[in-house]
Design a binder for these strands. Structure first.
Lengths: 331, 331
DNA sequence: AGGGGTCAAGTTAGCGCAAACATGAGGCGC
DNA sequence: GCGCCTCATGTTTGCGCTAACTTGACCCCT
């Protein structure tokens, strides 16, 4: 910076003003400084700036598994939004959520100088005694709002209700369920909403099969569930497992949708091209990421108390996409 | 830090030594300092450390699209490895690779203080006049080695050869191809290797269909390709498009694998559960990420000239996974 | 017993930047 | 025409840490 200042014949402070786009600099001076910067290939040292300002221009994202379908989409929109706002994104993945690991990850992030943290899927927060950093704003992405921090997420229950309602409306006596990973929060909420929806319609609530989100587990659940000939409709907690269920149905000679209706969850991009095209619940995870980020940045930049008004729309409603894997039961 | 020093009755320097695990500190002093840190909840300010040392403890990853199947897997392994080695990972996604955007992203990363950069899929490097930062080591993840930086990737050609060879061995007269996004490097290499493999086997090389990696585009390509009844075998450049091709085949009454053999690429987790289970090419992208990272960190920490020995195994061989979507042609 | 070595700690300086304050030139009103 | 205000720019200072050097206590050897 000193070199630039010398070459432009100004003080370091003026260079700083130009770099940070302050006003109160003559156009001519600005030009001279910019020319000098160009010539010298000057790059601001962000560590020094951070030290001087206390701001880092970085947002930390903590999650369990990057490759989980939903997480990618959220991270993608967070990264895009952060870039647009001049922030960079630092990733921390806690594969094995022991308390030790989680603490280390969070600590690693805050040590690493972030202005704010987004925690995806708050199962992390169930860790006993876990303290989230207090120095920086935190936003949670989760589908329940029982957190101490502002929370954004999907309205899982609405999605599950739509799926079950669709099947009931088609005339199925009841709807079976293949649940996701038991200690996952979305899985539990989808399962609970499925159960409530059946009860409200006065239907028998069958025992739910349990998977782990993987196609394998969906296949296994399907093989087991479909031995029962009375099963005519299945709501599967995600599309990946639904693929497994479709496979099991095929192997067991159950035609979809004639003998069996299947509804998935997520609307992965290939689901319209499955055989048959899968009826599923579409989630706008990008919106969730965007909102979380907006809220976080607002907190960072206002540095005031968080504007967590109760009336902010914090849970995005998913949407049922009806395709060819569901139909009225044969009689 | 000053507070810790005072509480422990030592100098700031001694605190620094304890934090950084230097020796030459009495066990007793170390204890006192650690107790003080604990009590005060002391966290080192990484910006200050970076300013003093010139090291940032961060690795930048530049890519086009986070949600591309391969990229996620690479990023995931890079993040895991980086965490294990005490680095954090900063993401830069360049959705629209105009030169301006690419430069901004790379510049953003280096401005943002990274010790090294991993560039995924070097299409980025085709941008004319693009200068990668010179101050930090760079590792490229790509499937060709014509870069100025150390490069790691998949042996795309070997994968494509295995796929084509398998279909030829089954007795198909020739093999059609659905290619990926035209300006993508893996797409081009798979297509070229498919062509070479056919030529080497003295087969007719049909015109290849072109998709964009998406299931939709695979479906469209399939609808078009399969109107030709002489098509008995298709090598599709990724699994997503293969799903579309399977769908098109189903709609056109072509039974797989009896009337038509299909091979995909990637071995996505649901492919064993498609109808029929898809024969595909499995890539160990995690290995690619791990190696790239190891190499990058070695460069960072040695600070010497890059040890890019020609004999390092830099291209990982994929593996053909034969399932039920391929069979000998009916005669 | 004195010199030199070893080791644990302290002291000093500076990394590169931006906030806060200081300066000085010019313009405006009455 | 004089004071005062505005605006562009310069100066000072300190962000929190670590590298390099310094100090002083103690020990061992001759």
């Amino acid at each position: 910076m000193a070199d630039v200042a010398k070459l432009a014949g100004v003080s370091g402070q003026t260079v700083s003003r130009v770099v940070n786009g302050h006003d109160r600099v003559t156009a001519e001076t600005r030009d001279r400084v910019e020319t000098a910067m160009e010539r010298l290939g000057y790059r601001a040292n962000i560590a020094a700036r951070a030290l001087a300002t206390g701001r880092f221009g970085t947002i930390g994202v903590v999650m369990f598994k990057l490759s989980a379908v939903g997480n990618i989409r959220i991270v993608e929109s967070v990264v895009a939004g952060a870039q647009a706002r001049g922030y960079s994104v630092s990733l921390a993945v806690v594969e094995d959520p022991t308390e030790q690991n989680v603490r280390a990850a969070v600590r690693g992030l805050t040590d690493r100088a972030v202005d704010g943290v987004i925690v995806i899927e708050a199962r992390i927060l169930d860790t006993p005694h876990l303290k989230l950093p207090e120095e920086v704003p935190v936003v949670i992405v989760d589908s329940r709002s029982a957190h101490e921090h502002p929370t954004f997420g999907m309205d899982e229950a609405a999605g599950a209700r739509a799926a079950v309602g669709h099947l009931i409306d088609l005339g199925h006596a009841t709807v079976h369920h293949v649940a996701g990973l038991p200690d996952s929060n979305p899985a539990e909420r989808r399962r609970a909403a499925w159960q409530r929806a059946l009860k409200r319609s006065k239907r028998v609530v069958p025992e739910s099969a349990v998977g782990d989100w993987s196609p394998e587990s969906g296949y296994a659940a399907g093989r087991q569930l479909l031995t029962d000939a009375s099963v005519t409709a299945v709501f599967v907690a995600n599309d990946q497992m639904a693929v497994g269920v479709l496979r099991a149905a095929d192997e067991l000679g159950r035609r979809v949708p004639d003998d069996l209706s299947v509804v998935g969850f997520d609307d992965l991009d290939f689901t319209p091209y499955l055989t048959p095209p899968l009826t599923t619940v579409r989630q706008d995870l990008g919106a969730v990421g965007r909102r979380s980020l907006e809220h976080l940045i607002a907190q960072i930049e206002s540095s005031q108390a968080a504007p967590v008004t109760r009336d902010t729309v914090r849970f995005v409603r998913p949407e049922l996409v009806v395709r060819a894997s569901t139909a009225a039961p044969e009689r």
